[in-house]
Simulated scan of single mutants.
Amino acid sequence: MPHRYVKAIVQIRSGPYTRDGYGVSIMNGDPAAEPKLIRTAVDQAVNEAFIDAIDTYEMGWKDLAPYKLEDWAGNPALAHLQQSGPPAGVEDGAAPIQSFAVSNHKCLKCKENLTNAEWELLGRIPNLNRESLVYCFEHILAHLKRKLPEPVLTDFEEKRNS
């Protein structure tokens, strides 16, 4: 601690992507006399590094843009996104469900193989770990079905019943 600063490096992974963030915090005072200064400096450096890493993913930029117009929100691509919204299909989770062929995933309850369409439907449920919560359409828990976007659910049911 002779230089009285702390540097933190944080690495965030999202799927196959990795981002690094860097943060620095300067300690004002003598860390030998006040050991809490070290903990505070480390926390501040790690928080700054985390924010730096997350910021590279541009999370929340659309929501924060109206408040940062003079800063980074003047980006024309961000202005376009604010006016027109995301491309079609992005809101409810990509391409339409098409295949009702049998997959190699088995329902936890009935032990029957899921169709590819049921597997894709599970992937559209927000925050569902479909590696451990695998259900055929009949056995998807009601609270999980309610999380599906209405157009996705009705489209799936129409194709399934036809």
Rank of each mutant, 00 (worst) to 15 (best):
G89D: 00
E118G: 11
D52R: 05
N104P: 00
G93R: 04
S103C: 13
Q11A: 13
I97R: 11
K109F: 00
T40G: 04
G74H: 06
N129S: 01
I26Y: 11
L114E: 12
K68D: 10
L122R: 05
L114Y: 07
W119S: 10
Y135T: 13
L141S: 01
M27N: 06
L148F: 02
T56Y: 07
G60W: 03
N113T: 04
H105E: 07
G123Q: 06
L148W: 01
E138F: 00
G29P: 11
Y22R: 09
R160F: 05
A142K: 04
P126V: 01
S99C: 13
L144G: 04
K145F: 02
I125Q: 00
R160N: 07
L64P: 02
E91A: 06
L114H: 09
P2V: 13
P86H: 00
F137R: 05
P66F: 07
A79K: 15
A49S: 10
V102F: 06
G23V: 14
V10M: 09
L114P: 09
Y135M: 11
A41N: 06
V46F: 14
Q82V: 14
A77L: 14
C107G: 13
Q11I: 12
A41Q: 02
K111F: 03
K106I: 04
A79I: 15
V152C: 06
A73N: 10
R19W: 08
N104A: 13
S14F: 05
A101M: 13
P86S: 00
A45W: 11
E131R: 14
L141K: 12
R39A: 09
L64K: 14
V10D: 14
D43I: 05
P151V: 10
G60Y: 04
C110N: 04
D52L: 04
I54A: 07
R13Q: 13
D30P: 04
C136K: 03
Y57L: 11
S84F: 14
T115Q: 06
P96Y: 08
I12D: 02
D30F: 01
V6T: 13
M27Y: 08
R39Y: 03
A65N: 14
T154K: 14
E158H: 02
H143M: 02
D71S: 12
H139E: 06
L81V: 07
I54F: 02
P76E: 08
D43M: 09
E91L: 03
G85A: 08
T154H: 11
L148H: 02
L78N: 10
L128I: 12
G23T: 14
W61K: 14
T18H: 05
E118D: 09
E112S: 09
K145T: 07
K62D: 03
E157W: 02
L69R: 15
I51H: 11
V42P: 07
L81M: 13
V10F: 08
R124Q: 00
L148N: 03
N129E: 00
N47R: 14
V10I: 15
N129A: 00
N28A: 15
H3I: 05
L78P: 13
P96A: 08
I54D: 00
G60P: 09
R13N: 07
G74L: 05
G21H: 09
M1N: 08
